[in-house]
Structures are given as C-alpha cells and as structure tokens.
C-alpha cells in the first residue's frame, strides 16, 4: 500500500465503494468511527496473520481504496470468529464484509496476496463437489501438493501424534447416495446469481 493517498481522486473514482460493499454484505461500513475494538480483539491480527488490521480495512472501504483493500491478505485471513462483531459498538458484522470482499476479489482474479488460502478453498470445494462430503485424506494430499511452504511442516507434530492421526484417518472417500447434490447446488447458484 502506498504511503500517500490522494483522497480527492479516490472519492472521484471509487466514492461509491462503501455503498457497493453495503449491497454485497448488508453491512454499512460507513458507520465505523474507528474505535479499534475489532482489531484489539482479533487473534489473527494479534498474531500477525493480517497485513492490515480490521479497523483499517473498514477505513479503507470508507475512503474508496477499492484496489488496495481487495489486495490485502487480511480479507482472506479472517476466520469468521466474529469476536469483532460481538464487540463492535456500531453493530457492523465485519466477517460478512470480509467474506464479501473475498468473493469480489476472487471474481476479479485477485488471489495472489494469500495464495494458500485460495488453494485451500479451491481444493475444499472440489472435494465436496466430487464426494458430497469432505474426503480428508484427499484434501490433505491436495493441499500438500498445491500449497507452498509447508510440505514437511506437519512432521513437527511428532511421531505419536502422526501415527494416531493416520490410524484414525479414513483411507477411502466417503460414500453417499447422492454425491452430485452439491455440484447441482453450486451450478444452480451460479445461474441464479447471474440472473440479477
């Protein structure tokens, strides 16, 4: 993010961004008065999982910093624990805003800020579309092959934990009578959302 922000230009080009976020998420970010309670209670932010704190994400939306906010890691790192929402004095459901921004970023192909999160969502969706339920072993293998930087990290779990986990992990995909159900829903949703 650049250090200098041209507010007049932002207002001219992206002045309606907060309104569009409102339409996407049902949350009026314009109400935020920057108390910072959301960031103070956000565990992901506290442990450096975000590049921009949640209250700054809110402010960036207000200012029309559309490109900048869609290019943050924070919108992907939010785990929807909703501690922020529980404490927000302005009654803003921040995770719903984060979700809406993720959906928008994905639509525009902006995923490079947190590739591992995007890979996770892709692999997860593929798993449930294929089997109707999560096939955990397939999911783990898919993640290990496609994500970067943690191929051997799980070895730190130690031998006893790994053996126990491996014993408990079903080796074959789950069997349901209707594995196509989720695929149909996903296709229907695409069609319905395209109708708007």
């Amino acid at each position: 993010m650049s250090a200098i922000v041209n507010l007049s230009q932002l207002h001219k080009d992206h002045g309606d961004f907060a309104e569009r976020v409102f339409k996407m998420s049902g949350q009026d970010v314009r109400k935020c008065y920057q108390c910072g309670k959301c960031s103070a209670g956000c565990s992901v932010h506290i442990f450096n999982g975000m590049d921009v704190s949640p209250n700054r994400v809110m402010r960036m939306i207000q200012l029309g910093m559309e490109q900048e906010v869609l290019n943050t890691r924070s919108i992907w790192a939010c785990v929807l624990c909703s501690t922020c929402t529980a404490r927000c004095p302005r009654d803003i459901d921040i995770p719903r805003v984060m979700d809406a921004l993720r959906i928008e970023a994905k639509k525009r192909g902006i995923t490079q800020k947190f590739k591992n999160a995007n890979v996770f969502h892709d692999v997860f969706m593929n798993s449930i579309i294929k089997y109707g339920r999560v096939y955990e072993l397939g999911l783990f293998i898919g993640l290990k092959l496609k994500q970067s930087g943690n191929l051997f990290a799980d070895l730190e779990m130690g031998v006893p934990a790994l053996i126990n986990a491996a014993t408990r992990l079903p080796k074959f995909p789950p069997k349901v009578k209707n594995p196509d159900e989720i695929r149909k829903i996903v296709e229907n949703c695409k069609r319905i959302e395209g109708e708007k």
Binding site: M24, V79, L80, D99, A100, R102, I103, K106, F120, H121, F124, M125, I128, G132, R133, V134, V176, K177, N178, E181, I182, I185, V186, N188, C189, K190, I192, E193
Partner: peptide, 22 residues
C-alpha cells in the same frame, strides 16, 4: 439420511448464496 457437507469453511467465501444453499 444422505446428509451432505455444510460447506464450511469454504462455501461462504466462494459465494453468499452457495454458502447458504449447501
């Protein structure tokens, strides 16, 4: 019978409607 995955933690990040429909 034949319950399917709830979609968490991904469906709601893919689309609002799909996150509810699943």
């Amino acid at each position: 019978p034949d319950w399917v995955c709830c979609g968490a933690s991904s469906a709601h990040s893919v689309g609002h409607l799909v996150g509810l429909a699943i």
